[in-house]
Amino acid sequence: MPIARGLRGIGARVVNGVWRIGFGARFFMMTLFYSGMSFRRFRLTVRELFFTGVMSLIIILVAGLFVGIVLGMQGYETLKRYGSESALGTLVALSLVRELGPVLAALLFASRAGSAMTAEIGLMKATEQISAMEMMAVNPIARVVAPRFWAGVISMPLLAAMFSAMGVFGGYMVGVVMIGVDEGSFWSQMQSAVDFQHDILNGVIKSLVFGVAVTVISLFEGYDAPPTAEGVSGATTRTVVQSSLAILLLDVILTAFMFRGD
């Protein structure tokens, strides 16, 4: 019976999915539980900060600049129709600080650092490095996973802030330097519209949440990957897809909570 087989296939996938969610949740809890070493031996975390944070710098800065330039040009086109070019700074800054900074930086982070983390841990598993560590009485969650988790959580808000700052600079270059919007009104309108608590702090909270989501997904996919070459490459792809979806879904939820229009 093809229908019965199809149903059984769907059922198996659902059960497997729920199983993975449970395992993932336990993995997250274990990571938090064994985080002591990441801070007692902060050097481990610093090393991972280099690989997640510093190595993502270039792509984040360049992407931020480009996004800011595009926002400046498109924003000017639209605002000009209503004669409010002076609100360009507000438009660029608010879109970056509230949405584009955290979201785009997290998407780039997922494909740059997240996939690298998955591949690295998957490979460590495939070459039995994780098993070897366990046999040497060293907890791989504490030694390998937790420092990467904290490095990701620390670097994500910093990267998002750099993305936004670069974007504002890009918008300034286009709006003020090239098109010639009045510099004073560009900055003053921006400053009176962007609220530290409501906009910037909420943006930082968003990027923190994204950082947790992306690193947990990346690390879990690596840890759960079948220990073969195909297993690792499949897990790397899944990391990027799932992280991106998680970022956008979380963004909807967080935006609904933070900016309800009151």
Binding site: T127, E128, A132, M135, A137, N139
Partner: peptide, 20 residues
């Protein structure tokens, strides 16, 4: 178990050296 494993050594099939 971890205390016991400190008294054991295991050589894995392809060495399993930490590549980093």
């Amino acid at each position: 178990l971890y205390r016991m494993r400190r008294k054991m050594g295991m050589l894995f099939q392809f060495g399993a050296l930490f590549t980093d």
